[in-house]
Design a protein around this nucleic acid. Structure first.
Lengths: 216, 216
DNA sequence: TCCATCCTTGATGAATGCATTTATCCATAC
DNA sequence: GTATGGATAAATGCATTCATCAAGGATGGA
């Protein structure tokens, strides 16, 4: 399947941000990105607008889009909002997930353990994303799913930003607890226990929050 | 303050939809809208993309944007998702709202009663929107607020679509219960009672759901 | 008559050029 | 020395143009 230019720009820009090639506060300029992504300004501009609409970037009119500076207040807002929608999604998944969807979750956790073992951060990040989005999808609610995606990406700014901070300080401890927490969530979903699923997911998200921002 | 063309297009298109000049299933074509809104295709196109990203419109690549056909499944999804975020917003408003924000809510309810009295549907709709967005703002969480806005607009497709259906069937009863439910929500917020605020908001949203779709 | 194919039509997708706005820097007046 | 104003450069905002694609009807052959 061949994606159009705007979609490619959209994904590339997210990649550029999450891979640390642009940092919070940096401006993402159309004239700079367009040649870099080998396309014209138009699709780049539209992709940036979309990222702004999704809250992933901020914008100053006539000036440009930039990665918002992380603040403790914003981190608290986005993680707590994410906890709300993700725990609700988990609760609904516990009621509505199909066998197939649950099998998929177990498969992701298996990859999860491998990635942690191998200490491959990139891979781990992708698998983690996969897990959260799969739970969201299993809620069978397109709106919750979309909000979960938005909040997750936005939170990643904090995870990656502070992760690089800690890495510089040699506190690079692989997140061994994550797979365990994922297992707890799946067990609750598989058992059809919405309350436990909700609690498990909320705990997990808020754990990520405290680890990312306060190193535990 | 003078808005730019894209923002004007964005608002105008929402107006065109909510005022019933386009109906579910209709395509909103750039070539048709641009002259109508007296601007070029560019800002119209970007406004449409934004509406698609927000879930307000659907899109077929290379074909155009259209108002999604209402389905019972989608209605259930969007109203129940809205209930989640709005009740959470109300709960947080109960904890965090300032005196000023609560005063504002009371003022809106006063207008509310007047509008119902005068049976001015247009006005009533604007005030209702104002109420819900003001509660969302009082949650002091930008993410919840954004999601509430999205869900509210999306729900309005159902409210307006089925409203016109009932109007044709002479069931045009002014929603006298709405102001009462709004009062219950504000009282809970003013009393600083998150649980009651949450319950009251959830009841209110789901009431709107059942009235809009099943005539009660 | 029916079906496959080609062509026309009408829509979005993308590139480009010009307009507009903003920030910055430097010269100049106080 | 500092403040102010204007020139300038850089960036987005918007319009225009061309490219591309999909759908549907006309056409021609079986």
């Amino acid at each position: 399947m061949t994606l159009n230019a705007e979609e490619r720009a959209y994904r590339s820009i997210i990649e550029l941000i999450l891979s640390g090639q642009y940092r919070p506060g940096d401006f993402l300029l159309e004239l700079e990105l367009a040649p870099r992504l080998e396309m014209s300004r138009t699709p780049v501009s539209r992709a940036l607008s979309r990222l702004v609409a999704e809250g992933f970037l901020s914008k100053m009119p006539k000036k440009g889009c930039y990665i918002p500076l992380p603040t403790p207040e914003d981190a608290e807002e986005v993680f707590s909002a994410r906890a709300v929608v993700e725990s609700e999604a988990a609760a609904r998944a516990a009621r509505l997930a199909t066998e197939e969807e649950i099998d998929r979750l177990w498969a992701i956790v298996a990859e999860d353990n491998e990635a942690v073992h191998k200490r491959q951060k990139e891979l781990f990040a992708r698998i983690n994303e996969d897990f959260h989005f799969s739970v969201a999808r299993a809620s069978h609610n397109a709106y919750l799913e979309k909000w979960v995606r938005n909040a997750f990406w936005r939170c990643n700014i904090y995870v990656f930003y502070f992760d690089s901070f800690y890495r510089l300080n040699n506190h690079d401890i692989p997140p061994q607890e994550t797979p365990r927490q994922h297992v707890r969530i799946i067990e609750a979903i598989a058992a059809g226990d919405p309350d436990e699923a909700s609690r498990a997911m909320a705990d997990h998200v808020l754990h990520t929050y405290s680890v990312s921002l306060f190193g535990k």
